[in-house]
Amino acid sequence: MSRDFNYRHLYYFWVVAKEGGVARGAERLGMAVQTVSTQVKELERELGFALFKPAGRKLALTEAGQAALQQAEQIFQLGEALPDIVRNAGTAPSMRLAVGISDSLPKLVVHRLMQSVLQTPNLQLRCQQNAFDELLADLALHRLDLVITDRPAPPNRNLKLYGHALGHSAVAWYAPDNLFAAACEGFPQSLAKVAVLLPSAQAALRLRLDQWFERQGIRPHVVGEFEDSALLKTFGANGMGVFPAAEMVHDELLSRYGVRWVGTCTGVEEYFYGISADKHVMHPLVQRLLPAPPEGRGRTPK
Rank of each mutant, 00 (worst) to 15 (best):
V222L: 04
A89M: 09
L125H: 03
G167C: 06
L209R: 02
P155Y: 02
H164G: 03
F226W: 03
A131R: 07
L207E: 12
W173T: 00
G48V: 12
N130A: 15
T149P: 02
G241S: 06
L179A: 06
R157V: 14
R219N: 03
P93G: 07
A140C: 09
V86Y: 13
Y11H: 14
L141R: 15
R112M: 10
P294N: 12
F226N: 01
E42S: 15
L285M: 15
T120W: 10
V286P: 00
Q74F: 05
L290I: 12
G100Y: 06
G20E: 01
T38A: 14
D84H: 11
M31C: 03
P155N: 01
K58W: 05
K279Q: 07
A26V: 08
M114T: 08
E42T: 13
R3G: 15
I275W: 02
C127E: 13
L10E: 06
T120E: 14
N238Q: 13
P291A: 07
H221R: 14
A192P: 08
R87M: 00
A183T: 08
H164D: 08
P176Q: 04
W173V: 01
F13P: 12
F52T: 01
L59T: 01
E225F: 00
N88P: 00
K233A: 15
P284K: 13
A26K: 00
Q70H: 04
G224L: 07
S169N: 01
P291V: 08
C127F: 05
L125E: 12
L135T: 08
F187W: 08
N238P: 00
S276G: 12
L232I: 04
A170P: 03
L205C: 07
D278I: 00
A32L: 11
V109N: 02
P121Y: 01
P155H: 01
P83W: 04
L47M: 11
P293F: 04
G274A: 03
L10N: 06
A81Q: 15
P93Q: 13
Q70I: 05
V281D: 05
A237I: 01
G163R: 09
V196R: 00
E269Y: 04
E269G: 03
T234L: 14
L254Y: 01
K302W: 13
P301Y: 08
L290H: 11
V147R: 01
F235L: 10
F5H: 10
L209G: 01
V16D: 10
Y271E: 10
V16M: 07
A204N: 10
D4N: 13
Q39H: 09
V262F: 02
T38D: 15
Y162D: 04
A153N: 04
V40A: 09
K302E: 15
L97S: 05
